[in-house]
Design a binder for these strands. Structure first.
Lengths: 342, 342
DNA sequence: CTCGTGTGCTGAAACGGTTCTCCAAGATGG
DNA sequence: CCATCTTGGAGAACCGTTTCAGCACACGAG
């Protein structure tokens, strides 16, 4: 069996309490002789002592665990952030507990069960709106659950949030295309808050130039986005004033659009330049042509979210302080917008 | 504060022990009157009682948690399986604890810390070989850690394993191309066990036909696979006997190859047919052209792995029984191999 | 009426730590 | 040499469950 604190104490000839103090002495005015200290440390080492996390958590009322509630892991975006969340959490001494919401479940109840009752100290929420609505989140927050929203905003709420600036992303995309000489630019966005922000940003950049023209295409449902890309592309090409460039809601949509462009016998970027969002690892850079894309600050988002949550869990920050952290994306220029690709 | 068992017991006018028996009575010859039972249940309901998992785990020496050790979540393959693992685990009453290995860490030590000391009851390992070598896994297994390998095999070991049949996948891919009339087929695989299995399967199918010819291309390092696709494609096209079809190690490699084919002014599938592996969600079906791909049995792999692990954790199956479960992939035919796409 | 014999429940002992109170001795000062 | 500090460490309570031995009571049989 695995060694317990009791065994360590016995081996070092001290009491259990003393051993505990030494092994995780928070410098709380400890008064332990160097010799005893060394004995205990040595004993722990030799016995390969690992504290029992349940006993510890039971006593301290702290789990050292962060819950992560995330949907659609396969969309890469979330998965990439999670990778960095793991790193940051691990670094701060926290474990990660994972839970996706399934359809047909009561989300609030599921989260309570999975993360409630002190099983986790705080929760990172990166769950899509169709599985976890704003009301449910607000309810959990009101119940006192410590949480940080990642890449999702509930406007008007005081829930701490980490996002990246989608307006800025749209702005950068448009700016990039303007610099390359485009004047008629279409914007193909999902009809959701994200898409709205992105197109607003793009419009802002375009509005500064009176010689530019904005064409707009809405894409409806998020689920259909893959297949809708082709349709959107076709629609855009048949507009009376065919644009010379397109800003797409994300890379997957861009792929669909590119297919449509090719199907019409046109070339990317010579006839139509394209910019996407998300810069999917291992994919976007190797598409045909390599796709210019707005890359979210993945690492910063993961790291910042954990930092923020830890601050809240440790009480350095009120959970209803309404902290919102806005990070900047970057533009990765590749061939699809007319930049020669290395 | 949250209600404890003590509160429930007090409210129902019974002892704590009785309340406990009623609330999770395992039918161990319980002798409780219906009236008392109802009183306790009602009290628990009213107080919204949720048992404290730490106290419970401390007492029962069982965590009801499965650890997941996975790398490269952003590769979709793992992420998709994880989705199903979550579902299955949740269904069986287990929580999921997540841990990726970082570079530069001692993997054994990290896993011990993250998952050791009863923090989890068992571990699902879907970690790549470059971060967690066979020896480390064997060591942990020998130490008694209950585990199931997912999509990875350590030949000669008795570690329970869930895989899908890559040989079969290769076979299906080749069979598919043969049926479509191809005779000269190139196989572009990573130089690893997976690639070996896939190409063996493909060769087996091709060998049955004496009019077919196999051309072979090795791809070296897994990290470079994205950029190597283009290179591999170019190499293949310049072979003296240009093949009419290519089986690629995975979809990402296939994308690279397709780019190369197009760059040479050739068409997919008219001049060269292509089949990949993994069928990436939201991507492969919308590539240009839509990619024919061998799809791993994602859902079965996740579900089976959890089932197996639970069997082991519950002692119904010895952890060194050497159970290996081999699942079958399926072929998703799309345009890249010459099939008309819906 | 008494003696089993169930039945229904109580009470206490774990589980393995953390943390707080307080005591024994040695050091110090007068 | 005695009173007082200071230092180093022991000991116990507690965290919230589970589980098990055993007690009180009612009831049927002899």
């Amino acid at each position: 069996m695995v060694a317990k604190l009791r065994d360590v104490a016995a081996k070092a000839n001290v009491s259990v309490g003393t051993a505990s103090m030494i092994l995780n002495g928070k410098e709380r005015g400890v008064r332990i002789s160097a010799a005893t200290c060394a004995r205990v440390l040595k004993a722990a080492e030799e016995l390969q002592y690992q504290p029992n996390p349940f006993a510890r958590s039971l006593r301290t009322q702290k789990s050292n665990t962060i819950g992560v509630c995330a949907a659609y892991l396969y969309d890469q975006y979330t998965a990439t952030i999670l990778q960095y969340v793991n790193r940051a959490a691990h670094h701060k001494g926290y474990r990660l507990m994972l839970s996706f919401l399934e359809e047909q479940e009561d989300p609030v109840q599921t989260i309570r069960e999975a993360f409630g009752t002190g099983y986790v100290d705080g929760v990172l929420i990166r769950e899509s709106a169709d599985k976890l609505d704003d009301q449910s989140i607000l309810k959990l927050h009101k119940e006192g659950m410590k949480m940080v929203l990642v890449g999702r905003e509930i406007v008007g709420s005081s829930i701490p949030t980490v996002l990246y600036d989608n307006f800025q992303g749209g702005y950068m995309a448009a700016e990039h295309l303007l610099k390359l000489g485009h004047e008629r630019i279409a914007i193909a966005m999902e009809n959701d808050p994200l898409g709205k922000k992105r197109s607003e940003g793009a419009c802002a950049a375009l509005d500064k130039r009176d010689d530019s023209e904005v064409l707009f295409v809405d894409i409806c449902s998020p689920e259909e986005i893959s297949s809708r890309g082709y349709q959107a592309g076709t629609d855009i090409l048949h507009m009376q004033n065919r644009p010379t460039a397109i800003i797409a809601h994300d890379d997957v949509l861009a792929f669909g659009i590119i297919s449509a462009v090719k199907a019409e016998g046109l070339r990317v970027p010579e006839d139509i330049a394209i910019v996407g969002f998300n810069d999917m690892a291992n994919i976007s850079a190797y598409y045909d042509p390599p796709l210019t894309s707005i890359r979210p600050p993945y690492a910063e988002m993961g790291g910042t979210a954990v930092d923020l949550l830890v601050d809240i869990m440790d009480g350095r920050l009120a959970q209803d302080a309404g902290t919102k952290i806005l990070l900047n994306p970057s533009l990765i220029a590749r061939k699809s917008s007319g930049v020669s690709c290395p």
